[in-house]
Amino acid sequence: MKSVLASAGVMAALLCAIVPARAQQAACEERTAAIEVPTEGGPAYGGMQYPRSVGLGPKQVALTFDDGPNPETTPLILDILDRHCVKATFFMVGIYAERHPEIVREVAARGHTIATHTWSHPNNLRHFSPGSAQRQIRQGFEAVEAALATAPEEDRERLAPFFRFPGLNDSSKLIRWLGERNIATFSCEFGADDWKSISSYQVRIRALRNIAYVGRGILILHDTKPRTAAMLSSLIETLLAEGYSFAQLVPEKGARELAAKAADPLIRPLRRTEVMPEEPETAALKPSLEPATALE
């Protein structure tokens, strides 16, 4: 009888643990909707600069973070997003992706979208020669791809054919050049001025004010700023309390392959992990012809 009661107690404890976990997972799925974004021909999105916006519903916000990865602040922001079951898009700078590839892989492992933001973040690519500007963009993609090279296939797929101009200082010629490679350009609907020397409180107030004024859209933040990390949890909680929801920008199905097939592509085809056929058990008994040094 005691063993039956003990078993029942264990089962009850397991159910108590499973039910909240499932409820939390369901809440996470409802918290951030995946919005598939077309990239063919390289459209430009963001009402602050362009006539086209991504397909967000009323009171729906897509969080985006620029300029990372940063070892001091990006992990803090990732933890906050996890805590609130929110997914975002990170526009990464190539030189920092090269310096901190482990953070690039961590962003992907946590399910966020990864995009690029040039190699070294020059504030205005309009002042560059066409060749130099194109190299900045190309090297940004290459650095992020290199950082993800050892990641699982699912995580490598997080790199999207998305690009954002530093300082939002775009160029019609460069947008057209990106479009020829099926890379979409992203601006935003609102910002929070977190790049300025203001307090975290002021960043939060400006974000809320701008979001309320427009009603829906892409919010541009920076995962390199401590003030942004300091106010992010409160911002998310306030938006949820006011009836907002969050969206994750993801490329339309096949967008990665479409970009990889373009002439002179900026993004390479994703190399699928090959599944090796299992050898019969007797094969293990055969001596290897490879020298030991070849296995090191």
Rank of each mutant, 00 (worst) to 15 (best):
G131R: 13
V203N: 02
D223G: 06
H121V: 14
D194M: 13
H222Y: 12
L125T: 01
Y213F: 08
R227T: 12
L208I: 15
A230L: 03
S171H: 04
W177S: 04
N124Y: 07
A160C: 05
F163E: 04
Y213Q: 09
R204S: 13
S233N: 15
P226A: 00
S199W: 09
H127S: 10
F141M: 06
M231A: 13
E180P: 14
I205T: 14
T228V: 12
W195Y: 15
F190Q: 07
A133W: 10
A147E: 00
K225E: 12
N123H: 14
A147Y: 05
E142A: 13
S129V: 00
Y201M: 08
Q139Y: 12
N123T: 14
E157P: 00
P152G: 04
P161D: 02
N210L: 06
L125R: 06
E154H: 01
T150K: 11
N169M: 11
S120Q: 07
F162E: 06
P152T: 02
S120V: 11
T113F: 00
E142Y: 08
P122R: 07
G191Y: 05
W195I: 10
Y201T: 15
P226T: 02
W177E: 03
L148K: 02
F186S: 05
L232A: 07
R176P: 01
R164S: 12
S233C: 14
P122C: 05
W177Y: 11
A192Y: 01
A192C: 04
A115S: 04
L232G: 03
T150D: 08
A147S: 07
A147D: 01
A151D: 03
I211H: 12
G215F: 05
T224P: 00
L168F: 13
T224K: 00
R216G: 08
R204K: 15
G140R: 06
L159R: 01
P226F: 09
R158L: 05
N169E: 11
P122T: 08
G191L: 07
N169W: 03
K196T: 08
I114M: 01
D155G: 02
I114H: 00
L232K: 05
L159Y: 01
H222W: 07
L232W: 11
